[in-house]
Design a protein around this nucleic acid. Structure first.
Lengths: 218, 218
DNA sequence: TTCGCGTTCAAACGATCGTTCGCCTGAAGG
DNA sequence: CCTTCAGGCGAACGATCGTTTGAACGCGAA
C-alpha cells in the first residue's frame, strides 16, 4: 500500500497533534545541533511520537526540513515586506536608507528576543542558510526576488550611487544580519569580557542601523 | 625513501605523499560539500589512496578535519597579525581604523583570488566556522585571543567610543568577512543581474573597507 | 453491530557510515 | 643473507541511518 501522507498545501491545520509536535521538535533540534547531526529518531523521541511519524506526515526527513524552512522564510519575508511597505507609505514611496535597513534587520531581531517564542526559528533559518541542501536553492531563488524590492528601494533612496555599489552594500548588510547566531554572540561575549549582551534587541537594532546606515552612505 | 624536496608547503615530519594527498582532497571536498556530506570513501577515492589511509595518518575523520582547520586558521591568523603589526609600525603604534580593518579583511580576500591556490582554503575556513564541532571550539577560543589584538587596536584608534561599541562593530565587520562564500556570491550575482563580480578582489576589498570604515566611524 | 479510513505502533530492511583487522610490499640496517 | 618496520592494501565489522512494512487502534458513518 503506497499510502501518501495527506499533504495539505498551506493551511495544514489538521487535527493531528503529532504533526505539529514533530514540526516543533525538529525545528528546535535542527536549530540547536544542525540538520545532519539530528536523526529522525532524535526528533520523534523529543516529540514523544512514533518513529514512522516523520515519513508519514512529511514524506521524508528532507521534506520535513524543507517544510520548516519554507514556512519560516515565508513568514520572515512577509514581515520584512510589510515593514518595507509601511516605510513606503510613511515617506511617499521613497523611504530613507535607515528605514529600509530597519525593515531588513528588525524582523529577525525581534524574533530573536529571549521573550519571543520564535527565537529558535531565527536560529533555524540562519543555520539552514549555511547548510542548505540543493533542494532549498529554489526557495532561495524566491528569496532573491524578495530581496530585489529592498535593492530597488535602496537605489531609489540613493540614486547617486552606482547600482552595483548598492548591491554590494546590501550584501554586506545581509552578512551582518546572518551573523547573529548563538555561537557568534557567545564569542563576542567572551571577547568583550561580558561587556556585550544581546538581550536588549532594541539596542542591538540601533547599533546595527548606526553601523549599516553609515556604511551605506559612505 | 630519501628526502625529496617538498614542493608541497606542508610542514609535516613524514615523507608520505599519501598524507598530503588526503589532506588536499579532504580540504577541497569539505569546502565544497560540507563536512557531514563527505565520507571517508569520497576523500580517499578523490585522493587516489586506500580507504584506511585517513585513519592511519590522522587517527579519525574528525582529527583530519581538525588538522586542516588548525593549520588554515593558524596561517590566516598569522597573516592577519603580520599586517596588523606592519600597520602599527607605519603609524607609531596607533594605526587608523581603515588600516586595522584592512589587516582583518585583506588576507582572506587575497586567498580568495581565483588565481590563488588557497582559494579553497578560505571556503573551508568559513564553512568550518558554521559547522564547527565541539572539538573545534578550543581553537576558536584561541581565535578570540587573536581577535583581542584587533579590538585593542580599534579601541586605541577611537578612544572616544565606548568599549562595547567597538566590540559590537568589530562583530559586524566579522559578519561581513564571513559572508564571502560562493553561495552568497552567486546569490548576489543573480540578484544584481550580473552587475557584480567577485573576481577583482582589490575592488571588493576597497568596497568592504569603504563600508566598514564608515560604519565604524558612525 | 460492521465497515472504512486516518493514524499510530513495533519491528525490521537495506544501505552507508567510520573504523579496524590481518596481510603484503619494499627498502633500510646489521 | 635475514630481520625489522612504516606504509599501503583488500575486506570486513559493528553501529547508525532513513525508510518501509503490516498489523493494530480509534472513531464516525452506515
Amino acid at each position: 500500500m503506497t499510502a501518501l501522507p495527506p499533504d495539505a498545501p498551506e493551511a495544514d491545520e489538521t487535527h493531528a497533534a503529532t504533526k505539529a509536535a514533530v514540526f516543533a521538535a525538529a525545528e528546535r533540534l535542527f536549530a540547536l545541533h544542525g540538520f545532519q547531526n539530528v536523526s529522525v529518531r532524535d526528533i520523534t523521541a523529543a516529540a514523544g511520537v512514533n518513529l514512522a511519524s516523520v515519513n508519514y506526515h512529511f514524506g521524508s526527513k528532507d521534506n520535513l526540513l524543507f517544510a520548516i524552512f519554507r514556512r519560516r522564510t515565508g513568514e520572515l519575508n512577509r514581515e520584512r515586506a510589510r515593514m518595507l511597505h509601511e516605510a513606503n507609505d510613511r515617506h511617499g514611496g521613497k523611504p530613507p536608507v535607515r528605514e529600509i535597513l530597519e525593515a531588513l534587520f528588525a524582523p529577525p531581531l525581534r524574533w530573536a528576543d529571549p521573550a519571543n517564542d520564535r527565537r529558535i526559528s531565527v536560529q533555524f533559518i540562519i543555520r539552514a542558510r549555511s547548510e542548505g541542501t540543493a533542494e532549498m536553492r529554489e526557495v532561495l531563488q524566491n528569496d532573491v526576488s524578495h530581496l530585489a524590492r529592498f535593492a530597488e528601494a535602496l537605489k531609489a533612496a540613493r540614486p547617486d550611487l552606482p547600482a552595483e555599489t548598492v548591491y554590494w552594500r546590501l550584501h554586506f548588510c545581509l552578512g551582518m544580519a546572518h551573523n547573529n547566531r548563538f555561537v557568534e554572540f557567545d564569542r563576542l561575549h567572551h571577547l568583550s569580557g561580558g561587556a556585550t549582551r544581546e538581550g536588549d534587541v532594541a539596542a542591538l537594532l540601533a547599533r546595527m542601523l548606526d553601523f549599516a546606515e553609515a556604511g551605506f552612505n559612505a
